[in-house]
Nucleic acid binder design. Structure first.
Length: 282
DNA sequence: AACAGAGGCAACCGCCGCCAG
DNA sequence: ACTGGCGGCGGTTGCCTCTGT
């Protein structure tokens, strides 16, 4: 168990990948597919273990990767999904087209967790920190129910079961615009192969529909029930407000916020999404 | 300009489950 | 039933870059 046999072989390089290695791997996979990963290094002329090649491809070289900073909607979706799925990054990543589990995990650990804490929310339990206690179902129990494929919809039909987006975004002390500021000054550039990729996700300045930022608009979320097979962009504009609408809604709801009123209002939309996820997965 | 600390990110490590022999 | 190879996943580490002083 543990380290794979291929990793015991000598001359296995470690550390950062060079552009030449990337090029070899991309060339090999585009021409032959990866097939058996353990044989890829040899066939591609790389001194890496198969696992390393697989990771590099999945997390960095795949052509369908989006890269760049996470949008507001993506972050919100991650928070929602984490509340339900816990640290099942691969399952969360499966619902964010073009994003990898590693990317999401890194973002969660370095950025989103911090933002949640700043908002007085425990990132592990998704419950408020401090004295104020929501009468909420224990997310541990939610996750257990999810894992046991039972009672998931029941838990999620409880508006208190998941401490969610609306509460994160519509706190009364927040400024009217989106409260989570995306730092676009960093991490928006990909250094792979000297190619710079950039995505503008900040809603503070220009308003850019996120659907335009998602290159793979073919990606679909297969939502069951009343809405079926929504296009990703349609889904975003339906379930989530567009950035401009998001601002307006945030502003309105900030003004209206009296405890949980706004949260309940927005929670209805979130319920649709989450219950659909459970209908499909569990 | 130089340095230290913080943050972000790529990659590794170790474990698990599946499957073929 | 057992064993080893492999893919996949989550946790963690360490390097690099950025920011503040």
């Amino acid at each position: 168990m543990g380290r794979h046999s291929c990793c015991y072989k000598q001359k296995v390089r470690k550390g950062l990948w060079s552009p030449e290695e990337d090029e070899k791997l991309v060339k090999h996979i585009t021409e032959h597919g990866h097939g058996c990963w353990s044989s890829v290094p040899k066939q591609a002329g790389l001194q890496r273990c198969g696992k390393s090649c697989r990771l590099r491809w999945i997390n960095y070289l795949r052509p369908d990767l989006k890269r760049g900073t996470f949008s507001e909607q993506e972050e919100s979706l991650i928070i929602e999904l984490h509340a339900v799925l816990g640290n099942r990054w691969s399952q969360i990543a499966a619902r964010l087209p073009g994003r990898t589990d590693n990317e999401i995990k890194n973002s969660w650990n370095s950025c989103i967790k911090k933002k949640l804490r700043q908002r007085g929310i425990d990132p592990n339990s998704h419950q408020p920190l401090g004295d104020f206690k929501m009468p909420t179902a224990n997310p541990e129990n939610v996750n257990r129910a999810v894992a046991e494929n039972s009672m998931a919809s029941t838990c999620l039909s409880d508006p208190m079961a998941v401490f969610s987006l609306a509460q994160l975004s519509f706190r009364p002390d927040d400024s009217p615009h989106c409260s989570t500021v995306i730092d676009s000054s960093r991490s928006s550039m990909s250094k792979a192969n000297g190619v710079e990729l950039q995505s503008s996700c900040s809603f503070d300045g220009g308003i850019i529909p996120w659907s335009e930022l998602a290159p793979d608009t073919d990606a679909q979320l297969h939502l069951e029930g009343e809405s079926e097979d929504l296009e990703w962009s349609e889904y975003l504009q339906g379930v989530f407000p567009t950035p401009s609408a998001f601002q307006t809604q945030t502003q309105t709801q900030s003004q209206q916020f009296t405890g949980l009123g706004a949260w309940h209002q927005n929670q209805n939309q979130q319920q649709l999404l989450l219950s659909d996820i459970h209908d499909k997965d569990f």
